[in-house]
Amino acid sequence: MAAVLKPVLVASPNLVAQKGVPYYLGDGWLVKGYSMSYLSLTEQMRGVSLLAVIDRILMLDDLWTHHVENGRPGKADLDSLDTITAEIINLLEIASREASWVSQVVSRDEEKTNQSLTLFAANTRISADARQNLSSKLLEKPGLVEFIRQASEKLPERVELERNDLQKKISKLREGQGVPGDISKNTKCFLQGLCCGVTAGVALVSGSVSEGIFAGYQAVELGDCF
């Protein structure tokens, strides 16, 4: 059995040496040698599905917000907003059901999880501020793994609040009242916590992570989530 090795930064900030094998973290992931993923293949498939769900939530939320905050929507748009609202709620419930699983997989071997998250936090596809944010979370107490656990624990209760809030907003829109867009910052924080829990394990293997997910890391300050 291969020993668990800590990643060592080498000459270039975009290179990580792992048992003498370079990992290039540029526009995508190029991983040579063996994978450091803390997820099995079945778990990686499940993680990809969860990331797709969260990515779609964020995109639909942007679409919903744009139409709500840029003029009073007409009847056709209200019907479409109803459909978007129902889908956001459904997707939030799917993400909520996966929360306990995410907490379990990151807790199974925290050292290996942290190694993978360290590589993920160096990915240059996210902004320098976002990389610093993630790296700081890894170093400070209670750490990024604990943030993921807390996010996984708190998301289900937030989903019920979002359901009620979105339904109230739709009712007000149909009455001709204006409403603010966006799902809450806390809900976005907890969704990003789930993303952190699976993105590193998937990205290190597949080399493919949605731009929307990376954009989310740039928009949410993890340190302000709790």
Rank of each mutant, 00 (worst) to 15 (best):
P7K: 08
A11D: 15
L15V: 14
K19P: 00
P22V: 09
P22F: 07
L25E: 08
K32F: 14
S35V: 05
M36T: 12
S40V: 01
L41R: 09
T42R: 04
M45Y: 05
L50V: 05
L51A: 06
V53D: 09
R56M: 13
I57M: 02
M59L: 13
L60F: 03
L60G: 02
D61R: 01
L63F: 12
H66M: 12
G71W: 03
L81W: 02
T83M: 09
T83F: 05
I88Y: 01
I88K: 01
I89D: 07
L92T: 05
E93K: 14
A95G: 05
S96W: 03
R97W: 00
S100M: 06
V102A: 05
S107T: 10
R108M: 13
T113P: 07
S116T: 13
A121S: 15
N123E: 10
S127R: 01
A130S: 15
K137F: 06
L138F: 12
P142Y: 11
L155V: 07
E157Y: 01
R158K: 11
V159M: 04
D165N: 13
L166C: 11
K169S: 13
E175S: 14
G176S: 09
Q177T: 00
V179S: 06
Q192K: 08
G193T: 11
C195Q: 08
G201C: 14
V209M: 13
G216P: 12
Y217I: 12
G223D: 15
C225L: 07
